[in-house]
């Protein structure tokens, strides 16, 4: 168990780094701002660059932070749910359903404003399919849930390939960006942070139960957890987190797999520390990744999903290697 003082310091540090990442995101871009311009813009939205900072960069950074936190939190939950460190927010087909619905909308020429709603509808549909099929009678079976989810995800992948094959050349680029995960047109609806906050509070409240659940279902039951109920609650919460993230920014890969792992290596696996740390780190990681995505080949913008993988893989391998040496 991490001492209280150390834990507070860690949370404070991550909160400060989060704020710093957003501040950096506001300063950097195709129009670079000097310190004084940046400061003036932050203080006064009516100043020369105020519009740029307050209408474009900050909302995008806020969306990035929220999506990163949603995905990381969802990843932590999925890994406990399936008791598998390889699980990620997309493994049970939530994003597949969302992607299919969105791409269908795109190929039918639906208005961009409609796409998040379509993504949500697709995600919800997929959640219900998997929930309905995997639930069944008898004891909870993680294997059945995993198989149902993975097979459902494969089904969506096939349908998505079909849409990509049939899609007009004009719509393909948009579809591809969405599938990789892109924040260029992301707008943060006000309910998304609300969902993040509410689900975070619920998970943080049951963090000790998650610790016990990570030791296996039987152990958890012996330690007093009504696991069947708990596992379905975790499944639904993780799915809603994923659906929210995907509806905002598409299938940004890797964040939800790697951030929980990185944080486990750094802060251990007590969920009372892990959940807040992963959420904050996921947020700031995605803000920085997106800032890079906007600037590295400016004025061209990369989909942020490319950057998360390019940054995440070496960072993860490095830490994994270091952890092994330490052991």
């Amino acid at each position: 168990m991490m001492p209280t003082a150390q834990r507070r310091l860690l949370f404070l540090l991550l909160a400060l780094l989060s704020a710093a990442s957003v501040a950096i995101a506001a300063a950097i871009g195709s129009v670079p701002l000097g310190w004084d311009q940046w400061w003036a813009a932050l203080l006064d939205s009516g100043s020369e660059f105020g519009e740029l900072v307050w209408r474009l960069r900050l909302p995008r950074a806020a969306a990035a932070w929220t999506v990163g936190a949603l995905l990381s939190l969802s990843g932590c939950l999925m890994q406990v749910l399936l008791r598998n460190p390889l699980a990620d927010p997309y493994i049970l087909g939530v994003s597949g359903g969302a992607s299919f619905a969105t791409l269908l909308g795109m190929s039918a020429g639906a208005a961009a404003a409609l796409l998040p709603a379509l993504a949500w509808a697709g995600a919800l549909f997929s959640i219900l399919i998997v929930f309905g099929l995997a639930r069944g009678e008898g004891p909870w079976s993680g294997t059945r849930l995993l198989l149902t989810g993975v097979v459902t995800a494969s089904g969506w992948a096939a349908l998505i390939s079909l849409l990509l094959t049939l899609g007009s050349d004009g719509s393909l680029r948009g579809m591809l960006f969405w599938l990789i995960g892109d924040l260029s047109y992301a707008r943060l609806p006000s309910w998304a942070p609300a969902i993040l906050l509410v689900i975070f509070a619920l998970c943080f409240g049951m963090a000790r139960s998650l610790n016990v659940l990570a030791m296996g279902e039987t152990t958890a039951r012996l330690l007093g957890e009504p696991t069947r109920k708990l596992l379905w609650v975790v499944y639904l919460l993780a799915s809603v987190l994923t659906a929210t993230a995907v509806s905002i920014a598409g299938n940004i890969g890797f964040v939800g797999l790697i951030v929980p792992h990185l944080m486990r290596l750094l802060v251990g696996s007590d969920h009372r520390v892990l959940l807040p740390a992963a959420a904050m780190f996921g947020g700031l990681f995605l803000v920085l990744s997106d800032t890079l995505a906007r600037t590295v080949l400016a004025p061209r913008q990369l989909p942020v999903g490319v950057v998360t993988a390019l940054l995440g893989v070496p960072l993860f391998l490095l830490l994994l290697n270091r952890a092994r040496v330490k052991q």
């Binding site: 168990m1 890994q79 610790n211 251990g268 696996s269 007590d270």
Partner: peptide, 10 residues
């Protein structure tokens, strides 16, 4: 079987 890393005390 311990799948996730944790300390002995925890």
């Amino acid at each position: 079987v311990y799948v996730f890393d944790s300390s002995v005390l925890q």
